[in-house]
Simulated scan of single mutants.
Amino acid sequence: MKSKQVREKIRSGEFQTNTSGACDEYVQANVVILPKEYAFDFFLYTYRNSQACPVIDVLEAGEYESRLAKGSDIRTDVPLYHIYKNGELHEKKNDLLDLWKNDFVTFLLGCSFTFESQLLENGIFLRHVECKKNVAMYKTNIPTVQAGDFSGPLVVSMRPISNEHIDKVVEITSRYPNFHGAPVHIGEPSEIGIKQIEQPDYGEFVEIKENETPVFWACGVTPQAAAVQAKIPQMITHAPGHMFITDWTNKDFMK
């Protein structure tokens, strides 16, 4: 299906699962929506932590159509939203129509699903895609750089990679700085504060086999951890793995 068709299915409630593997050739984006009074500090936070939070579009206060997706509606075109209030996950919703405010500013952040499509094209096996699972994500002991009220740990996504393909994976993903780029860590999870690899903070764990190494990339869920720590009155994000699908192809954003 084309990106517009998937957005229409999401908007109608026909498609409500995670978007990993959907519209592989199109850029998918993490979503952060917050009141205008917090927008500058958040933009500064993304600038200071660009590997985890690479901004690919910003919608001005009250706007809900992205320039990356003609006819889109950020209030309805994400399969599942997380609503945070005062740093706590308050509820999950399939649309924001009854919550929308004219002072909401929306940030779209690059997503690792873009480089996943390129890995698959190059014959790199990704177990979570094969198993139709959401990628495993973990909070680390690596701090992000604070901006205003926003701070917190770097969140990473993990993929088991065959040892013979690690160099190739690093080379391919480094071509996509707008989508988290090269890995931030390869190997022992405890070195970045992950004590139980089998228990991700978000997403679903997949087996790491004997001839494989866990490889970790900066993740767009990082702002959700920052929202919890900031305790701002209201912040809305995509549910992990449930992305906004644009009309831009992955190649449009190549370095």
Rank of each mutant, 00 (worst) to 15 (best):
241 G>D: 08
40 F>Q: 14
105 V>W: 08
70 K>Q: 11
95 D>P: 06
79 P>V: 04
9 K>P: 09
210 E>Y: 08
208 I>C: 10
181 G>E: 12
156 V>N: 12
2 K>T: 15
53 C>W: 09
215 V>S: 04
42 F>K: 10
236 I>M: 00
126 L>E: 12
208 I>D: 07
124 I>P: 01
250 N>F: 03
111 C>S: 09
129 V>D: 01
86 N>L: 05
78 V>Y: 01
107 F>I: 07
232 I>T: 03
64 Y>K: 13
39 A>S: 15
52 A>N: 10
96 L>G: 06
250 N>A: 11
36 K>I: 11
227 A>W: 00
133 K>R: 13
219 C>P: 00
86 N>I: 02
79 P>Y: 00
97 L>F: 04
75 R>W: 00
50 S>Y: 13
110 G>M: 10
147 A>W: 12
2 K>W: 06
108 L>I: 10
123 G>Y: 04
2 K>H: 09
219 C>Y: 05
55 V>L: 14
247 D>I: 03
245 I>R: 08
142 I>S: 04
228 V>R: 07
51 Q>F: 03
123 G>E: 00
179 F>Q: 09
244 F>W: 06
77 D>C: 02
158 M>P: 03
233 P>Y: 04
44 L>D: 14
222 T>N: 05
194 I>S: 11
224 Q>K: 01
203 G>N: 12
68 L>C: 09
7 R>G: 02
139 K>F: 09
14 E>H: 05
148 G>E: 11
213 T>D: 06
247 D>V: 04
183 P>C: 11
65 E>Y: 04
5 Q>F: 10
52 A>S: 15
238 H>A: 06
105 V>I: 12
70 K>W: 07
43 F>L: 15
214 P>D: 02
135 V>F: 08
124 I>K: 05
238 H>N: 08
152 G>Q: 03
90 H>M: 03
92 K>N: 15
221 V>C: 00
26 Y>R: 11
128 H>D: 02
61 A>Q: 10
244 F>P: 12
166 I>A: 06
242 H>G: 11
67 R>A: 12
114 T>N: 04
188 E>W: 07
229 Q>R: 04
205 F>M: 09
12 S>G: 06
162 S>P: 03
194 I>C: 13
102 N>F: 13
32 V>S: 10
116 E>L: 01
57 D>G: 02
45 Y>R: 02
224 Q>G: 05
159 R>Q: 07
206 V>H: 00
156 V>F: 12
171 E>R: 14
151 S>A: 13
42 F>W: 09
140 T>F: 08
47 Y>A: 15
202 Y>C: 05
11 R>D: 01
206 V>E: 00
156 V>R: 08
54 P>F: 12
72 S>D: 00
183 P>H: 13
145 V>F: 14
73 D>A: 04
254 M>T: 15
14 E>K: 13
246 T>N: 02
50 S>P: 09
104 F>Q: 08
173 T>R: 01
119 L>C: 07
166 I>F: 09
83 I>K: 01
88 E>C: 06
223 P>C: 06
134 N>E: 15
224 Q>M: 10
30 N>T: 01
144 T>G: 05
120 L>Y: 02
64 Y>W: 13
136 A>Y: 06
223 P>H: 04
132 K>V: 07
55 V>D: 03
132 K>D: 11
96 L>I: 12
83 I>S: 00
184 V>Y: 04
206 V>F: 01
